[in-house]
Write a protein that binds this DNA or RNA. Structure first.
Lengths: 347, 347
DNA sequence: CTCAAAATGAGTTGCGTACCTCAAAACACC
DNA sequence: GGTGTTTTGAGGTACGCAACTCATTTTGAG
């Protein structure tokens, strides 16, 4: 009836005895230090496997002494999403200090590859782990690889650099996010046919491009009655988004759906209401902020695709810590899900 | 530019010096032991506050020696949702044993209050923490309170007993879940008018009743064109759900929406397809399982409301651990969100 | 066989806390 | 002033591991 999931309670000493070697040798194997014959390594590892031995994290943490330092490299300038990540890290401060972890925020221009690369290089050696909102660019990729080679653990946050050797990516699958947005717009529009508008920051941004790709994919295959208009590039700015959209509304009277890929939500909402179409057009955007929350409650916005920033911040810290400790990562736990947020399940 | 979020690195010794007392006294205060004058307690606590001192978790964990034992009291019998929770706990086994935590599963008939209460009483004293899928009943409430009084940490899982003194509830707000389901059915039905069917396990189950309540709330206020039919009680059984639903389809030709509150999804889907209405009726249900995943991909099911079982399992363990250690709980992290899962954001 | 290099054993120290004992000091009460 | 009780100090041990030193043994190359 009662089934135990965790047996062990062995120590390094037991493993040493099992393997017929000394404590020092087990320690050497455990930390990949040199000076152990391959055959001996094998014996020790087998003993560890056989007993499914797990070093006691608390003891290990206590013994190593030095605190661990992590850095979060994030975009400078006001950005609600990034601000939220920072806030959530602040909320963790008790948790962090109880584990003698320090997390520092480094603001930089993540959109300029050379500046970002330089910022990363400058951090080399000072940190045990780095989380970075990265641009996918050769210079950045090289900087990341250098950090990895220097022994620093690196995770990309929100935006990935898949071609680098970063240890982990904490963020969503943006193509799937775009597909989800497409499905929502299509389904919520219902039987009606008409046109669908897309407002993005820039198609040059990897995450935006991927979302648009996914969105179009779903629209063309599943909602042939809806035709997608050319993408408006609002540069994530409210004013510009509003103007572009206002013009579009003037040109097309039969717009039934709207997908806002990035920020600039305020401007998009304004254009909608000034055109008097805020209740007829299905409006799907990204991220739960104070603004989108209000728009959802008002019924102006119909759904928001969200990647929980709190979860991302915490996942990044946990992953960095697990990497630094050499622990396995709980992939299922650290995976960032694509949240669909509507009025009634607002967090 | 670089802003540190975590200063401290003091030890108990520093606090003792600060407060002008010995280590032993600090220890007494920290663990609420007797034999310390109120005035001294105050001085020590002030010193702790003033330096925002945090005991080093690793050191504390190491020093206490004994492993912690947790128990999960779950429904016996085959239940995919509970099975998933168990699976995820299994995936954590490395994480658990590295922290010298043991988690045991205790199966019982959670639907019989007296049996459940007896099971809980039987666990008293043996565990540091207990997670229980509880029925809200006076006997169960008393059993939970007894455990709490005995010093055991108790969290309710999936289904709450708000009137008890359990330390925490790990699960979703079921009224909000019902509202979300209602909004989805209403929005996805579109312009059409017609009837909406509800299949539940039993209206006597607290979570089911709450979901139905939320669902009706949204339907009546926001979708007056849709009329909700009386709730069918399928007892979470496939066959019974199917028969009840088949009969209903015979009686009403204009059913456009269907909300399956609990399990029995297989039967519901079968009734839908045998009536040849699987593509016309908007079908919203709960939980992502192998079955609902397939139904979503086939387009039979339109959306699933999900409370991530993996997240629940892990949250329950983390909360129990934090409670046992006397650490604060990261509420934002442990809160279970209501996930809307459609085909394109299937996890 | 010789010698240097490589591999291993044995041991120590310290991390910060929990928990325990025993003695000394402070206090309350009559 | 003496008694008993409460409060406090001082100190030790243990927890499991990391990291280090130094001595010893084994190995391989010449």
């Amino acid at each position: 009836m009662a089934e135990t999931l965790t047996p062990t309670a062995l120590t390094l000493k037991d493993i040493a005895r099992e393997a017929g070697v000394s404590l020092a040798t087990v320690d050497r194997v455990l930390h990949n230090r040199t000076g152990v014959r391959p055959d001996t390594v094998r014996r020790v590892k087998e003993a560890i496997e056989r007993n499914s031995f797990q070093p006691h994290v608390a003891a290990a943490e206590l013994a190593r002494g030095r605190a661990r330092r992590f850095a979060f490299v994030m975009p400078s300038g006001p950005n609600p999403f990034m601000q939220q990540i920072e806030d959530y890290l602040g909320e963790m401060s008790g948790w962090l200090s109880a584990r003698r972890l320090s997390v520092e925020m480094v603001a930089t221009d993540v959109f300029d590859p050379s500046v970002l690369a330089a910022s990363l290089e400058a951090l080399s050696g000072d940190y045990d782990g780095i989380a970075v909102v990265a641009l996918d660019h050769p210079g950045v990729r090289a900087a990341i690889n250098d950090l990895v080679d220097a022994g620093t653990k690196v995770v990309t946050l929100v935006s990935d650099v898949p071609s680098s050797r970063r240890h982990h990516y904490v963020g969503i699958d943006n193509i799937a996010a775009g597909r989800t947005a497409g499905a929502l717009v299509g389904r919520l529009v219902g039987q009606r046919s008409g046109k669908v508008a897309i407002v993005a920051g820039s198609q040059g941004l990897r995450d935006h491009a991927e979302r648009i790709f996914g969105f179009n994919q779903v629209m063309t295959t599943e909602f042939p009655d809806l035709s997608v208009l050319p993408v408006l590039e609002g540069r994530d700015e409210d004013d510009r988004s509003e103007q572009l959209l206002a013009r579009l509304f003037g040109q097309h009277a039969d717009i039934v759906g709207l997908y806002n890929v990035g920020a600039g939500t305020q401007g998009v909402a304004k254009a909608l209401s000034e055109a008097g179409r805020d209740k007829q057009v299905v409006f799907v955007g990204h991220d739960v902020t104070a603004l989108t929350r209000r728009l959802l409650l008002q019924g102006v916005m119909d759904a928001a695709i969200s990647q929980n920033p709190g979860h991302e911040a915490r996942a990044a810290v946990r992953v960095l810590l697990a990497l630094a400790r050499g622990e396995p990562i709980l992939h299922e736990q650290e995976k960032i899900r694509i949240d669909i947020v509507m009025r009634d399940n607002l967090p």
